[in-house]
Amino acid sequence: MSVRLLVGTAKGGFWVTSDDRREWEVTGPFFKGWKVTAGLRLEGGGFVAAVASDIYGPAVFLSPDGEEWEQVAEGPAYPDGDDRRLRQIWTLRENRGTLYAGVQDAGVFTSGDGGRSWRPVSGLNEHETRGGWMPGAGGLCCHAFLFDHANPNRMWCGISAVGVFRTDDGGGTWIPKNRGVYWAHEDEEFKEIGHCVHGLAQDPDDPDRIYRQDHSGMYRSRDGGEVWEKNENGLATAFGFPIVLDRASRHLFAVPLEADQYRLPIGGALQVVRSTDAGDSWHSASEGLPAEHAYGGVLRGAMAVDNLQPGGVYMGTTSGTLHVSTDLGENWINLPVTLPRILHVSAWVG
């Protein structure tokens, strides 16, 4: 079964493809010189990519084949004169034919026409707590979405240094859902925000079972985010950014870093931790990863799974190294590439 990875870096995008998950071919860069910050393969075919430049700003591009790209004319944008700026698109997701873009400055935009035009989700973007939203070290960004596949009106989003929000009415109103999570910073007025979610994953059978890699540790909710509990059994450090779930095995994967003032692999050894029991316990799954002199971290969008059996796990580091496991983290290979700083990894089958 062929697998296609979109690897977004600080200096362009790369395709990493394999027909057997043993031999990998790297092509690129495309969008040379631009940050490639998010990617999506549309359910109906074609690709969406988010790019950004420190000089020229962000944009959304569409492609029918991943080769020829065209910028959309009406990308996500705050109104002229607004004090917010669209600085970067952090994540792209599709649910029930609607595309979702999580952006910095923090907000959500949706597209109902395959990414050609976008409109703001005012219930979130103009949220009553907005005045208390403060940027974290990565900026004030919305970077994660989860969806309730049984209930089209219910979804979650994660905003760095603000927290998790849930809507139960199709995006009209959003309620902060952070009870039990330590504050990153406590707002004087809005006590339900100030929680720094780094990554989210969700059980495909039970959408209320959500896993949260937070600035303040590893958490799990069994009730859609109403209450969060720490689940750090086996973790030497609970700080990190990505968390992904393999849909076939239900295994969870994360990348622990030495917190938070350092943000480095512990002792110079790049590690992955895995939970095979729904977050009850965590164990190292790092065989084959660089065990010394490895100081590149893994950013929140730079880890992905392919959901094959056995599951493939893929991650790229801030040092530009790319790592592949095709047996659910039992063994890793380090691809012989040194790319620019890796911001994003997506994996698609076929």
């Binding site: 020229y56 700003g57 962000p58 944009a59 944008a77 004169g81």
Partner: peptide, 8 residues
């Protein structure tokens, strides 16, 4: 959006 900001 690449040459001009929201203020024009």
């Amino acid at each position: 959006p690449h040459l001009f900001n929201e203020a024009g």
